[in-house]
Measured scan of single mutants.
Amino acid sequence: NQASVVANQLIPINTALTLVMMRAEVVTPMGIPAVDIPRLVSMQVNRAVPLGTTLMPDMVKGYA
């Protein structure tokens, strides 16, 4: 099973992602693959992402 990107903290809307905000976890359903974490750094979320939420492609501006 491939790990997905999960929020390590509450990420407010329009926040630029940093490594500290994300962790890799095997979850269902799968979200953004953990291998993409370096690519996500400095991209912004388009909604508030609660702690423990799996990041989906439509939550990150410019990802999809």
Score class of each variant (00 low, 15 high):
T54Q: 04
L10E: 13
M43P: 00
G52H: 11
D58L: 09
M30L: 15
N1E: 15
P38H: 13
P38D: 07
M59A: 11
V45S: 04
R23F: 03
A34M: 05
G31Y: 02
M30A: 06
V45Y: 00
G62F: 07
D36K: 04
M43Y: 14
A48C: 13
E25Q: 05
L55Q: 00
R39E: 04
T15D: 04
P50A: 09
V6S: 04
T18C: 05
A3L: 09
Y63S: 03
Y63K: 03
P57S: 13
V6R: 04
I32P: 01
N14S: 08
M59H: 08
M43K: 09
D58F: 11
A24R: 05
P33F: 04
N8C: 05
I32A: 03
V27R: 07
V6D: 00
M59F: 12
P33K: 08
V49E: 01
Y63Q: 04
V5F: 02
P29D: 08
A7S: 09
V35M: 11
K61Q: 11
I13E: 15
L40G: 00
V60E: 02
D58T: 13
R47E: 14
E25T: 05
E25N: 08
K61T: 11
V6I: 13
V41G: 03
M56S: 12
T15H: 09
K61L: 15
M56A: 13
P50S: 12
L51C: 15
T28F: 05
A34E: 15
P33G: 13
V26T: 12
T53R: 11
E25W: 05
P33I: 08
P50K: 12
V27T: 12
P38F: 10
P50Y: 13
A48S: 08
E25S: 06
R23V: 07
I11L: 11
R23L: 05
V5H: 01
G62I: 05
A16R: 06
V5C: 11
A64Y: 03
T54A: 07
A34D: 15
L10W: 09
G31S: 02
T54Y: 02
M59R: 03
A3M: 09
Y63P: 03
A48M: 09
D36T: 06
T28D: 15
G31P: 00
A64L: 15
A48W: 07
V35N: 13
V41F: 10
Y63M: 05
V60M: 06
D58H: 06
P57N: 09
V5N: 01
P50I: 10
L10A: 06
S42Y: 13
M21I: 04
I37T: 13
A3R: 03
L51D: 10
L19G: 03
P33C: 15
N14C: 07
S42K: 08
P29C: 15
Q9V: 07
V20E: 06
R39I: 10
V60C: 03
V45N: 03
G62D: 10
M43C: 05
L10G: 09
T28H: 06
A7I: 04
R23I: 05
G52K: 10
R47C: 05
V26I: 10
M59G: 03
I32T: 02
E25R: 03
D58R: 05
V27P: 01
S4Y: 03
V35Y: 07
A7W: 02
A24C: 06
A48K: 07
Q44G: 05
L17G: 00
V5P: 01
L17Q: 00
T54H: 03
A3W: 08
V45C: 05
A64P: 09
Y63L: 12
I11N: 00
M43D: 03
V27N: 03
G62Y: 12
V5Y: 01
V60N: 00
I13V: 08
S4Q: 02
V20S: 14
K61V: 11
P29L: 14
I13H: 12
V60K: 00
M22E: 00
T28C: 15
L51P: 07
V26W: 09
Q44T: 14
T54N: 02
T28A: 10
L40N: 00
V5I: 13
R47S: 06
Q44C: 09
V35S: 13
P38Q: 08
Y63A: 04
V20A: 12
M43L: 12
A3I: 06
P29M: 12
P33V: 05
L51S: 13
Y63H: 04
S4V: 03
N14Q: 08
L10V: 13
M30N: 11
V5S: 04
V41T: 13
P12G: 13
T15E: 07
V49P: 01
I13W: 13
L10F: 10
T28V: 09
G62H: 13
V35G: 09
A24E: 11
P29T: 13
T18H: 10
G62E: 14
R23H: 06
P57K: 09
L40T: 01
V45F: 01
E25F: 05
L17H: 00
M30P: 09
V26D: 15
P33T: 13
V5E: 01
A16T: 07
T18A: 07
S42M: 11
D36S: 07
V41Y: 08
L51W: 10
A64E: 08
R23A: 06
P29H: 07
Q2M: 13
L40A: 01
N8L: 07
T28S: 14
M22W: 02
M59D: 13
E25V: 05
S42T: 08
I32L: 10
R47W: 07
A24G: 12
A7M: 05
T53I: 12
Q9Y: 11
